[in-house]
Structures are given as structure tokens and as C-alpha cells.
């Protein structure tokens, strides 16, 4: 188990290193064009050069990267080029909003998808057809279109929820709930059918295994067999699809935060991208990849813990 953990951790760190290198090279390579973008089209060549020197963009790329890495290890990801704020501060103030949104939505997705998928596998009949059709419909309609429709109907037309999020530093729980309800519903609608479908297949497959019949022959009840043996065996498959959805949501949240005007990482990323605030974009990339690595590691460890073959050896 320790060797397994270390291997997974090593793979994650390697991923983080590779992505940071590629992203840095991509984002920071073109010094003159970045400086020109900041000072504006009217600026003289001297002003551009001065800006380049000021931001350190005249230094060779590898040297700049090494110093960035050094700072990053100390927790310093640089400063915004457009405002008096460090990248770390910008991320830290917005992180709770985005993570709350994603985590809440995923908890609901997990609960609903597991219930629906299991019921479809066990009961078959109408609920199975609902899950099957729902999976096709869910695939067919892009999530952000669903979100736009929800926002239009429930926030703009009916005014049941705030169209612009009221989440701000020091806002109460009621502001959070009012602002996040609709986006969470949008995510659940968009994600739940796909995961329910996967869980359904896993449960069906598990129920056909020989040991389920033997357990029944031993006199154990159907409920116990379903909860302790069938769902336990189907858990790794469910975990995999849910973790993929979680990672997908790190990107999907960007669009949702724009639609519902939520002050999260996504809004930060969009503004920085439009402005050309490269340090902030780089910071968002680092944060995202770090989260991906953490989520994947947690899922790998959970799978290892679920599977005695990995755990015992």
C-alpha cells in the first residue's frame, strides 16, 4: 500500500511539473507582445521596452522559470500585472466559493446518481427507462445551455433567486445558499444522468457475479447483499466516473460562475484571460492541476482501500 501510494504521488507530482513547465513556456514566452498588450497600442517602443524590463520579461525564459519555481515553492506565485494584489491572495479569496459550489454539487450528484442507478439496476422497469433516456438527453444538451435556461426562467423571469450572486466577504449563510442553489441544480441536472447510467451498469454486472447467488444460498437477506456486497463491488466504477466529473467541473464551473455571476476562480480566470494578466492565469493553472492531482490521488487511495488486492500487498 505504501509503495502504491508513493507511485501514485510521484505520478501526480510529475504531472504538476510537466504542466507548469509547458504552461509557463506557453504563457510567458512572448515578452514584447505581453508588454505591448499591457501598455497599449499608443505606447512608444521605449515604453514597451521599459515595461518589459520592469516585469523581468527581458530575461531568458529558463532563468525566469527557475526563479518562478523557486518563489512558488515558497508559496509566492507572483503579483497581478493589473492590480495591487498577489496571485495567491486572489486565488485564496475565491477558492472557497468555487470549491463550495463544486463540492456541494458533487455530493448531490453522488447521492442521487447512486440511488437512481441502483434502483434502475435492481428494479428495472420504468425507472430503468427513465435513467436510460435521461442519459441520452443529458448527453445531448450542453450543460451551460441548461444553466442559461435555468437562470433565465428562475432568476430573471420569476425572480426566485438572485441573478447576480450576493456572495461577498462576510456574507451570511443565507446569501451563499440563495446564490448557489440554482447553479448546483444546473450541475446536478447536467451530471447526474451520466453517472447514474455508469453506476447502473456496474450494479447490474456485480449482481450477476457467482458469489451473489452463493451469499443468497447462505440465507443472507437481499438488502444486506445489495448494500454490503453488490454496492461495495460496484463502488470503484462509480468512484471513477464521479472523479472524472469532479475534474470536469473544475472547468465547467468557469462558465457557471459567469452565468450566475458568482465571484469564484472561474470569474478570476476569465477576467485575467481577457486582460492578459498572465501571472493570474498561471496561478489558476497551478491551482487547477494541483486540485486534479489531489482528487486523483484521493480516488486512487480510496480504490486501493476498497480493493483488498491492493491494500493487502
Amino acid at each position: 500500500m505504501i509503495a502504491f501510494t508513493l507511485k501514485r504521488l510521484g505520478s501526480g507530482v510529475l504531472l504538476l511539473a510537466v504542466i507548469c513547465t509547458v504552461a509557463y513556456a506557453l504563457l510567458f514566452a512572448n515578452g514584447p507582445s505581453i508588454a505591448r498588450n499591457i501598455v497599449g497600442d499608443q505606447a512608444t517602443a521605449e515604453q514597451v521596452a521599459a515595461k518589459q524590463t520592469e516585469l523581468g520579461l527581458d530575461q531568458p525564459l529558463p532563468l525566469r522559470f527557475l526563479s518562478w519555481v523557486g518563489d512558488a515553492f515558497a508559496g509566492d506565485l507572483g503579483r497581478s500585472w493589473f492590480g495591487p494584489i498577489t496571485v495567491s491572495d486572489a486565488l485564496v479569496t475565491r477558492l472557497p466559493v468555487t470549491l463550495t459550489l463544486i463540492a456541494t454539487a458533487m455530493i448531490f450528484v453522488t447521492l442521487i446518481a447512486t440511488t437512481l442507478g441502483t434502483a434502475a439496476a435492481v428494479k428495472r422497469g420504468w425507472i430503468d427507462r427513465v435513467v436510460q433516456v435521461g442519459a441520452i438527453v443529458g448527453d445531448a444538451i450542453p450543460g451551460f445551455v441548461v444553466a442559461v435556461v435555468l437562470a433565465t426562467i428562475f432568476a430573471v423571469q420569476l425572480g426566485l433567486f438572485p441573478a447576480v450572486s450576493s456572495i461577498a466577504p462576510g456574507a451570511g449563510a443565507d446569501a451563499w445558499i440563495a446564490s448557489l442553489t440554482l447553479p448546483v441544480i444546473a450541475i446536478v441536472l447536467n451530471y447526474v444522468t451520466a453517472s447514474a447510467q455508469q453506476i447502473r451498469s456496474a450494479v447490474i454486472q456485480q449482481r450477476e457475479r457467482d458469489f451473489v447467488r452463493t451469499l443468497r444460498s447462505r440465507g443472507l437477506g437481499d438488502g444486506e447483499i445489495l448494500l454490503r456486497h453488490v454496492l461495495r463491488g460496484a463502488a470503484p466504477a462509480g468512484l471513477t466516473v464521479l472523479s472524472l466529473q469532479f475534474v470536469g467541473l473544475l472547468g465547467g464551473a468557469v462558465i457557471l460562475e459567469r452565468i450566475f455571476a458568482i465571484p469564484g476562480i472561474g470569474q478570476l480566470a476569465i477576467t485575467a484571460t481577457v486582460n492578459g494578466d498572465i501571472p493570474i492565469v498561471m496561478g489558476v493553472v497551478v491551482y487547477t492541476v494541483a486540485l486534479v492531482v489531489i482528487v486523483n490521488l484521493v480516488v486512487d487511495l480510496l480504490n486501493g482501500w476498497l480493493n483488498p488486492k491492493v491494500r493487502v500487498s
Partner: peptide
């Protein structure tokens, strides 16, 4: 394992 929108945002920045 990368969320595509984040990648596309950084490509747009570059």
C-alpha cells in the same frame, strides 16, 4: 485529467 476549459483559457491568454 486536465479540465479543458482551463487549458483553453490559458491558450487564449498566450
Amino acid at each position: 485529467s486536465l479540465p479543458s476549459i482551463i487549458v483553453l483559457l490559458s491558450v487564449r491568454s498566450a
